[in-house]
Structures are given as C-alpha cells and as structure tokens.
Nucleic acid binder design. Sequence first.
RNA 1: GGAUCCGUAGCCUAGUCUGGAUAGGGCACUGGCCUUCUAACCUGCAACAAGCAAGAAGGAAGCCGGGGAUCGCGGGUUCGAAUCCCGUCGGAUCCA
Length: 568
Amino acid sequence: MVDDFRFHIIEKLIDEVGSDDIDDSVLEVPPDPALGDYAFPCFILSKKLKKSPQAIAEWLAGKWKPDAVIVDVKNVGPYLNFFLDKSKLSGQVLTKIINERADYGKGSDSRKMMLEFPGPNTNKPLHLGHVRNMLIGVAVGNLLRFQGNQVINTNINNDRGIHICKSMLAYKLFGDGQEPDMKPDHFVGKWYVRFAEEAKKNPDLEVQAQELLRKWEAGDKETIDLWKKMNAWAFKGFQQTYSRFGVRFDKEYFESQHYKKGKKYILEGLKAGVFQKDDDGNIVADLEPFGLGKKVVLRADGTSVYMTQDISLVHEKFNDFPDLDLSINVVATEQNLHFQQLFKILELLRYPFAKKNYHLRYGMVNLPEGKMKSREGTVVDADDLVQEMVDLAHAAVELRHKDLSDEESLARAEVIGMAALRFFILKTDPLRDMTYDPKASISFEGETGPYVQYVHARICGIKEKSGRPIRTDIDFSLLKTPEELALVKLLASWPSVVADAAHKYKPSTVAHYLIDLCQNFNEFYHRRRVVDEERPALTDARLLLCECVRQVVEIGLGVLGIDAPEEM
RNA sequence: GGAUCCGUAGCCUAGUCUGGAUAGGGCACUGGCCUUCUAACCUGCAACAAGCAAGAAGGAAGCCGGGGAUCGCGGGUUCGAAUCCCGUCGGAUCCA
C-alpha cells in the first residue's frame, strides 16, 4: 500500500523476532478492512519458536505498543493485524496525488525499448486480429513509457510476396485501371477476394501470380509500378485506421527493402558452423538439442524464408538504434515457435543483441461461430467494427441528449464507442484466447469503458456543481467512512498496480483496477453526499477525494489509450 | 507423435509468477432503490405534519440484496494449495 507504513511495521517486527524470517513481502492485506489494514501471518515463525501461530500472534500483540502511525494491533487467530492512523494515511496519499497530478504512479525506469506492431500485409485491410494487436501495442507502449522508459514504435510492413501479387493480378486482369471508389485499402482487398473467386474457376491464375512474383523480383518496371500504386492505396487506407486507433510509428520497416539482406547472415552462420546444409541443399539450423526442431533458414535455391528476413530485420533494428535495451514484437501466439527459434538462432550466432528480444504474444480472437477465415468471408473488418461501435454509442448519446449539436454528439460517440471497444479487448489477459461476441462488446453497462468514463464525467459534474475550488488544506480525519477509506487505499495502490502491469506487459491489470476503483467510487457516491452546504469542511475533504479518484481514472484510462470525457 | 498456452457458477473473467483468513468482479436471472399515472372507498402503520402500504406503465452509461463454484480430474509437497510438483482428461495453437 504505502511503503512508509509498511517499513514502519517491518522494522518493528524485526526488532521483536530478528531479521531471519522477515522481509518486505511478509505483510498481507486482510480480506476485510474491519480486520485491519495490514496483517502478519505468524505461521512462518511457528517452527522456529516452537509455538502455535495463534500463541505467537497473541504474544506479539501483547508486546506491541501503539504509536503515532500504527494506532492498534490485534491478534485474530494466527494473524497479527495492524490498524493505521487513517487520517495520516489519507493525508499522505491524497496530498501525493494532488501534488504529482498526471505523474502519480510514474516509474523511474530508463530503458530504451522498441515495440513492433501490427505488421500488416498490404493486400487486404486490417481485421479484428490487428485490432487486438494495435490496442495491446498502444497500451503496452503507454505502460512502458509511464514507467519512465523511452519507447520507439515500429511497424513491419509485409509488402511483398505471393499474396500481394494475387491482388495485383486480379486488378490487372479485371480492374480496368479504375481508381478506388472506397477506402483504398478496402479497394485493394476487394481484388484479393476477387482473385480467390476467379482462381477457383481458373487454376491457371495461381501460375500467373507466381509469374508476376518472378517479374516483381526481376524488377520489371510495369509490375513494380503497379505494386507501388496498389501499396500506396493500402498504406493510405491503413493510415486512416491507425490514426483512428491513435497509432503512430517512429520508424517503419518494409519487407521489400530487407528481404534479400538476410542471406549474408545465413552464409556467415554456415561458415561458423552454426548452420548446416541438408540433403536437399537447404541451409538449416539444428535446434533439436533445445527441443525446437530443425529449421530451414535459407532455401536451396538461395531464396529467403521468413526466418531469413527476420534475422535481417533484427539486424536493421539494432543498427538503427544501437543503444536499444529491448526489442518487443507484438505478434499473435501462433508464432510462438517461430520466435523461440529466431531468438535461439540469434543466440547461437552470438549476436550481442540476442537476448534483447521479446515476443509479446497474445491469444487469438475468435468469433462465436469459430475461427475467422478470410476465405469464408467471416473476417471482421477493423474499420467496420469501429464504425459499428461508434454508431451504437451515437445512438446512446442521442437518446440521452436531445439538444446536442450533431458535431458534439458525433464527437462524444467517437470517444465513447472507441472506449467501449478498447476496454472490451484490453480487459482480457492478452495471453488468453478470446471470443469476440458483438452483443457483449456493445454493452455500455458492467465492466466497460463507458462505465469508467462515466465515473470521470460524474466527478467532473460534482466539481462543477459544487462551485468550489479543490482545497488541499483539508481535515483528513473527516474521511472516515468505510467507503472513503476503501477509495484511499485503492488510490494508494495505483503505483504498484501500474508497475506490475508494465512489468508483465498486461494492460488488463489496469483495466481491472479501474473497474474496481469505479465500483468503489459509485458505492461511495450513492451512500455519501459529497456537496453539503451545511458542512463545508466535509465537502472540501470529499471534493479532494473525488478529485484524486478522477485524476487516477484519467491516468489509467490514458494508459489504455482511452479518453476521459468531462461530459458524456 | 512433439512443443507452447488454456481449463475458476449457465456464460465471460480476476487471482496462479511471489501458497495463507468467507475464491473477487461482470453478463444473464431475480427482489428492491427512482419517476409518473390509476385508486384515494375500506383497512392497517404513522399521526404535529409530510407520508407509507395496492395496481399499472416507464426510466437508469448509477446503487443495494438474492440464488448460482467438486477452482477439469487424481495424487504429492506443506501447519495451510485455485496457486508449487507429478500424472491424467479436455480445448486452442504451432511443428512433424
């Protein structure tokens, strides 16, 4: 909770029983605040002292004298429970928040990190999987930055290969040179779908696509021009989606620019004996000793595989940013083995940056009907999804406010709809597979983004209505109801919560914290009146508490990439 | 066949790394909190007074209550296991 209080207790514990068994982690928070603010379970001393934990708790409770900070100590069964001076606790926590403002909970890490996401293919628009990828990428980036790190956002554009040639071929054959009449990446995707349809009727198209790829690799001008034109459409469309999701990149990589460069690293590795040639002439890495199988790193004909390119890409990254401490790839869990192999190969090649890579994996997003399959047309498009959420939010806003201008109403809908989507995706542990159920995701009640936003707006409303400034010279002893103390404790825990979330790359931890904080706030709000003309001192104290809750909600939402509106 | 991840109420989910007090939320279900209308004859509570009790409709980005869990299963370690270890079953993903 608050370190000062913790250390105080631990120091005194060490005085009593010695430092052998006591460290920072022995204190717990009791399940019910009525039991105490901190607890020391006496089991661990049982063996050494040859006494029952109950007897130890009783003995320690008898020896402990209340002081200015710990006002009471009680033994309950095998636990020794400590009661803090509540007004000292509130004073310390709320003053800290109000002084530090948006920096409350910021960490002091100072590493330089790179985050890579979402790595789109330029032959079709972004889909639901990319949505999860981007939301996790943005949120984890925010988390790491909030911990004090410098974070470089990068993106690898998979802009070459057979799949790109397929949409190119379809456009070439049936496109009649037309310009996009829709969002340009959707336009490109349309030709990819068209290719699949036509290829079913005419298998020769597959051969023609291969031919087109050869021409592309040979640098055929007409093919390159078409490729540039269609990729430009794709990028233009992606850019629109990125900006709606608040995604921006400091550095973009393009597969087409480095896919050939990997070859030399492979040949170096072959020379050094890290790789071998197999019977077919492929160059392979034998990762059997590490339980990772055998992996082809360069085909017999000298063409590259994904692994070749990825080795090359890692080189580029660490060349561009030599002082990088960590490079994080945000990629779905299905690539797990690939990254394990990649990192092991980097290690075998003895690259200095071998251990500075991390695969931040996340689970699949399935639909209630099962897996998304582009061939069966069950892919949920990212742009459609966003629009659907915003439209629903718009309807909800219109329902509540008839007198808003269209502009204001749409702006609110954007903020609320995006919050609903972001929160729905981010509140689940990234590692978990999740089912995207449109019906559940569009709800604005329960554990949702709008629920959290509403608390923020509500507090802004209370402040406004009170017509009073936030004062810090309040009487903290007035905050004594269970609801108020629960809020103070939750606020106190924010720094450790957000540090933990960053450490584990888990935005979901922040989402759950916010839900908890908001539930507690609403309970407080319904049970205790904040603005009370008759009791100005209490009003000031509660207003300060509200403002601190608001501040932390704003920070927390910000970390998740969600706006905190003052009205909604 | 091998590897990785997952298994917690009807459904979704936190907690698992770092073992401790009744396994925390949400959805759905259910009872209430609010507003309006009807009735205002009788009866009851209250009685200084406002009122409450019935029925119907509606509303809520909010609150309170209720039911609902062999923490997949079996074993082990431990004073203590959702958490650690072993085995097993089921699901997802990747590799072959």
